[in-house]
Amino acid sequence: MNALHQYLLDSYRAEQRGERRPPMPGNHDVAALRELRDHRRFHAVISGRPARGATWARLRAAVGRRPRPGSG
């Protein structure tokens, strides 16, 4: 059973019971990713590391792309 099937089943059950429908799958994915990013940035600052740039630098190194001019 995938997420859509589970959502449809939960929606049906909620309707039968007179409850609110659950949120659609994927509705809050972007918000969850932003919260994870903010959490990591917060802990980086607390431990004395720079809060930005490390992830992109690692990604560029893995892909083999050169950094853009002026991006430090």
Rank of each mutant, 00 (worst) to 15 (best):
M1K: 14
M1Y: 11
N2E: 09
N2S: 10
A3D: 13
A3N: 15
L4F: 15
H5Q: 14
Q6L: 11
Y7M: 01
L8N: 11
L9V: 06
L9I: 07
L9D: 14
D10F: 01
S11F: 04
Y12A: 12
Y12T: 04
R13K: 12
E15S: 12
E15G: 10
E15L: 13
Q16Y: 03
Q16N: 09
R17M: 03
E19H: 09
E19V: 01
R21C: 04
P22L: 01
P22K: 00
P22F: 00
G26H: 03
N27C: 05
N27V: 02
H28G: 08
A31P: 07
A32P: 09
L33I: 07
L33F: 11
L33Y: 09
E35R: 07
E35C: 08
L36G: 08
L36W: 11
D38G: 06
H39W: 14
H39I: 03
H39D: 12
R41P: 00
F42S: 03
F42E: 09
F42K: 05
F42C: 04
H43C: 01
A44P: 10
A44N: 12
V45L: 07
V45Q: 09
V45N: 05
I46K: 05
I46V: 12
S47I: 01
G48T: 03
G48Q: 08
G48R: 02
R49V: 01
P50H: 14
R52C: 04
G53Q: 05
A54I: 07
A54M: 14
T55A: 06
W56A: 08
A57H: 14
A57G: 08
R58T: 02
R58Q: 11
R58I: 01
L59Y: 13
L59W: 10
L59D: 09
R60N: 08
A61I: 02
A62R: 11
A62Y: 11
V63G: 15
V63N: 14
G64R: 08
R65P: 02
R66T: 02
R66A: 10
R66L: 05
R66D: 05
R68Y: 05
R68L: 04
P69W: 04
P69M: 04
G70Q: 08
G70K: 10
S71R: 11
S71I: 00
